[in-house]
Design a protein around this nucleic acid. Structure first.
Lengths: 231, 231
DNA sequence: ATTTCCCGCCGTGTATGCAACAGCGCGGAA
DNA sequence: TTCCGCGCTGTTGCATACACGGCGGGAAAT
């Protein structure tokens, strides 16, 4: 369950209006309902959320550092459009972050965390067989999040999650590729095995491959997504 | 000429008031002039900066995700106080990010970047010999930044810089330790050599050690910093 | 017809005002 | 004397108002 986890603030007593809007917008963007390039008009959003411009502005400012939206000083905000280079950069870093997470998890996951990972993996097997892409995708987020938590490193968890979120809009369709679901699950299996074995290097290597393949799969579809305005 | 609004070309045309305040505050915090735990009163800051509360609020909201300040929903903002665990987490991630940067740089630095790195290192030798800690510290930031730039990976540069900034307030005194300046420079030398040799693994290993030692040095002084100004 | 300049509109940046909440000290009761 | 409740004050959250700047459309000149 991908819960927003800031560094170490366990009780978010009462979310402020701006935070609520930020969360809502982030959700919309990550889910792909707000497409890259969409202009985010403050007044429009304000009316949509039934508030004034102030909380909307705060939300946008809050989202900007996450990379989900891009704000130009006097020209307003749009849903972020990373170019191909940036995406490649992010995938590379992502692979390393995940590798680090896998390695750390292999070493320091607690027994019940290991069981949880195993359970998650098993559950995904069923989804894979059923061809339920939506469920698998959701479960996949959890799977990787379990890896992060296994590191017992809050900061790593934080930036890995952020990177994953930021990449999410561009991986939406990635699991749709015919054989991808099965292979993804296979790769997960190898990762889990390595982790259970305490094989840090092996787990890291396996997940690098995993992300690398994900990236390649994505590249294939990238062309289609590339030109939003060429029409 | 078709208007090409590239997204990641950051010469900020005209910084807005909020951004200026955010930058200023960040500077103050990183430099250690605003100590962790200091409450950041909106109205007070507004008067200090000669503006209204609005830009100050934006600045604080903007700074919160960077981790430099912590904002409690209805209780205002304070200069961030990471606990020891968080700091350890961050140092660990930092070490890996730098390792990754060093490895990538070893492989893909351009000739003139390599020359620049060498030059920077040479300049720091002089500062080291002169015992000019302030200059060395500033140059050190540049040194590591050159490493990031050498990767030609914008995202890595981004998060490594962010992490370094976030850690900065807690390393302010770190180079003060007697022999640290000389050893730091020695380690830099080994890193540079490995990079020039194209030895990615070696560079990564060297810099892991470098950061690790930094962390240890820091731990020693942590005790002193822990007490909230008992003196 | 095309290009260029100017003007008006829309949207953002900033200031101010109002309401609600949090912290805190004071007074009263046990 | 100590503990609890209550109102007060300061600060934040949000809304509204005002000013500046950018952008696009239209008109005029080439």
């Amino acid at each position: 369950m991908p819960r927003r986890s800031t560094t170490a603030v366990p009780p978010p007593p009462r979310p402020t209006r701006g935070e609520a809007i930020a969360a809502s917008l982030a959700e919309e963007i990550v889910a792909g309902r707000l497409k890259p390039g969409t202009p985010l008009d403050e007044l429009g959003l304000a009316k949509a959320f039934g508030s004034s411009r102030t909380p909307v502005r705060e939300a946008l400012r809050q989202l900007a550092p996450t990379g989900l939206v891009q704000v130009a000083p006097r020209r307003g905000a749009v849903v972020a459009i990373p170019d191909a280079t940036q995406l490649k950069d992010m995938f590379l870093v992502m692979a390393e972050l995940e590798a680090m997470a896998a390695a750390l998890s292999a070493l320091s996951m607690l027994p019940e965390q290991r069981r949880g990972l195993e359970r998650q993996h098993a559950a995904m097997a069923a989804m894979m067989r059923a061809g339920d892409v939506a469920a698998y995708r959701a479960a996949n987020v959890t799977f990787h999040h379990l890896l992060y938590l296994g590191t017992h490193n809050g900061y790593l968890t934080e930036i890995a999650t952020a990177t994953r979120r930021r990449l999410a809009p561009f991986r939406a369709a990635q699991l749709e590729a015919p054989d991808r679901l099965r292979r993804s699950h296979e790769e997960h299996g190898e990762i889990v095995t390595a982790i259970q074995r305490g094989d840090a290097a092996g787990a890291a290597a396996r997940i690098r491959t995993h992300i690398g393949l994900t990236e390649q799969t994505w590249s294939v579809m990238a062309v289609a997504l590339r030109r939003p305005d060429a029409a």
